[in-house]
Amino acid sequence: MATVTKPTIQDRGYAHPEVLVSTDWVAEHLEDPNVRIIESNEDPLLYPSGHIPGAVEVDWVRDLNDPLVRDYLDKERFEELMSSIGVTPEMTVVFYGDKNNWWATYAFWVFQLFGHENAKIMDGGRLKWELEGRPMTREIPKYPRTQYKAKDRDDSRIRAFRDQVLAHVEAHKPLIDVRSPEEYRGERLHMPDYPNEGALRGGHIPGAANVPWSRAINPEDGTFKTAEELREIYEKEAGVKPDDDIIVYCRIGERSSHTWFVLTYLLGYPHVRNYDGSWTEWGNLVGVPIEKP
């Protein structure tokens, strides 16, 4: 365990601290019938190998994506998913997962397309829970099925599509490319250690600043940096302003959902959208400009 005392979530200066919960909070709410804990990972074997007692799994490939159209699940499938894990619209869902909550924030973002606002992220994710030696189980919980009624999916507020991105570029509005510097410079077409997923060209969307997503995280325990540290990165270094109309992107919109979460909730920026088409679309799109050094 870390020996340095870190500021609590409430003391970090976030615009919306209520969207984060600590591992202590989760430990105290394991039996809370109004709380559903959801693990979302990139590695499909992590959850079955051990998870927070009572936590259900939402898998980004199987549960959140449409298998035939490159899109997220529709309202009916979202209602089915929520009903199957025993969630009601009033219930608070708490996401956590591997890789610094990368996939947890992705699931959180998809849930926001359907307006499930009672949603939180466990600060530090799976890493912090494990580092603290907290209980894990392999038991898969079963909850009584609910009849979840979802709001209509609203892509307009937090999701950006390619034509909107093109207009954004032409209007010289800010974009943040959250991929690795090598991907941003076009020296590689995929993230380090990951295979190439098929973009034809390397580079970035014209005008985008490069802020790798994981800079928002304290690597030793996966917790988020303080608002002051985050402002230093995004405002001073990358030059974005809180009231800007900002589009974030990465490779398929997963890493950038993490940055979307940071900018929207921790810094309180009101106009941030995630371009989930990201580089796997833009880097293959006929007729759009790219930029590279």
Binding site: E42, P44, L45, W60, V61, R62, H190, Y194, P195, E197
Partner: peptide, 16 residues
């Protein structure tokens, strides 16, 4: 072994 729900990146790593 893992089923069809494997993400592309994960699949290619295991194929490797």
């Amino acid at each position: 072994l893992f089923g069809k729900d494997l993400a592309m990146g994960r699949t290619l790593g295991l194929v490797s």
